[in-house]
Amino acid sequence: MTAHIIRRLLLMLPNVALLTFLLFVSVASLLGSPSAMMLGQDASPEAIAELNAIYGFDRPVLVQYADWMTSALQGDFGRSFTTQQSVAEAVLPRIPITLELAFWSIVLAIAGATTINSIPVARRFIGSSASGLAIVGITVPNFMIGICLIYLFSVELRWLPTTGWVPWSDGVGAHLTHLIMPVVTLTAFYFGSFTLVYQAEYRAVSRELYIKVARAKGLSETRVSFRHILPNSMLPVITYAGLSLGQLVGGAVVTETVFSIPGIGRLFVESIGTRDFPVMLAIGMVIIVGVMLMNLIADLVYTAVNPQIRLG
């Protein structure tokens, strides 16, 4: 198993290198000349050239990339153009916030989609409305869900705080009340797509012979559903969850913006707005590596829970 994980990690390296290089080239071309941006419209060409030389923007892109990657691997992502703060210091504390948001959303979506769609009574009475709900989850944009939640629960009912983020250390209650709406917003899409995937697999599994046997033994419908069908219908949901992590990051970007959550998604949007080159690059890299690692983890979980797959 360890050898397998190490091999998979090594296989990731060329992809990470390729993607970060493409990222670097896009960001570099996006700015044209960051020095011109920093100095403003009235800057003389000489002043721009001088600043280019100081920052090294006049060198070939490949050299700049190699340079950036070398320092990045040592944990040095440069300084923000706008705040002059160290990029690593600006980005690192925000990562756990985005991770927490993503974690609860995925857990809630998987747990919700599999349990709700396994309850026999619910399946009989709301079978079709559950897929209706799934379609709503898939098609309503996150910002719309977020805005409607804020309007209903913060503006009208005044039950929950509008926006912002309170860390665990400042109170568990406040942390949770600030967490509820963003997590629900981010969960909706995944709940929807997981429901569709799970329902399809559930139908396929319930036609299996061993399910007939379980029923013939006189087991209750609930027991058949939760003990026999659910565990055997989980795999496609896990695979799908792994594949949709990229989209989860996109959802987090929007959700963090709606709820003013200081995660990496919001910082990323801000850095694009202000053309903050080093911050964009650092977050881009965190996202690329993060999504690939998560995909790998999803793959390993899949292998672990499915004994049919042998590691070769």
């Binding site: 993607l19 996109g250 990323f268 881009g284």
Partner: peptide, 18 residues
């Protein structure tokens, strides 16, 4: 595979800005 794993929205953000 390379593209499918990437966040579409993030990719679109970078390319549009570019």
């Amino acid at each position: 595979d390379l593209f499918v794993a990437l966040p579409g929205l993030v990719l679109a953000l970078i390319l549009t800005a570019m």
